[in-house]
Nucleic acid binder design. Sequence first.
DNA 1: CCCGTAGTTGAACAGCTGTTCAATTAACCC
DNA 2: GGGTTAATTGAACAGCTGTTCAACTACGGG
Lengths: 131, 131
Amino acid sequence: MATATERLRRYLDDELGECRPEDVDRRLEDLGALAGALSEERVTTDVAVLSALSSETRYAAVRVLVAAGEELCVCELNAVVDASESAVSHALSELDDAGLVEGRTDGRWRKYRATDRAVALVTVLDGATDE
Amino acid sequence: MATATERLRRYLDDELGECRPEDVDRRLEDLGALAGALSEERVTTDVAVLSALSSETRYAAVRVLVAAGEELCVCELNAVVDASESAVSHALSELDDAGLVEGRTDGRWRKYRATDRAVALVTVLDGATDE
DNA sequence: CCCGTAGTTGAACAGCTGTTCAATTAACCC
DNA sequence: GGGTTAATTGAACAGCTGTTCAACTACGGG
């Protein structure tokens, strides 16, 4: 880590023309603030959400639910998602854990809907909110 | 797949009270349209982007770049991202492949910035666009 | 040209992951 | 209560992944 700080000092020296120890300290502080702007817990949560979507089966399931705009029955997802029934069930379970879908039981049918967060993420991936 | 259609038929029967073969066909068509709204290529691309962010090292690097709002030198990232220099390099390379960062060489320094897409995704994860 | 620096990249490896298979659970109907 | 249906879940396994290590490439200065 000392070498990382050394290199940063040389970089600032290069950029600023001259570099005092306090310049390095300040820069490290500024950079640390950027990294520290979100908690470790938040990083873990966000990465869990992103991981939940980084599989074609789970992503497809979420896409269908978002496109539907309302809850769908698991048997409907099984009919259109290109994966086995068991794989779809695993996918829905993990999406539920990640807070991207919400499920409810209706008799022996089970229905899922996309959460607002899933909608927001999918919308961004579509580029609809590019501004 | 025949059993999936059979179950869908029973579901529609249950939901609609009665179910004709053309009802099943129509529903399958509607569901298929939801799934088919985006191309296979697009699914692959989106999943690649999401996968690129589903690692704490890559996610942290992108978060810092987004928070910085401007390009940072690799040595600056090395100073704040909690990973080895080599791991950070691998991370940046994959993020670049996924279109989430853009790099340029400045002498022997190498600098990266977050792309608009990365900014949009991170913003959504923050909930800033929840509406 | 040589040396040192900045950063990248490939291979190895430990650990992780998604699907399959089979068992299981819960609900409904007779 | 038994049988069937709807869906879930755990374990196994093949394949994938992130970090480390070491080698490499490119650039700048003397």
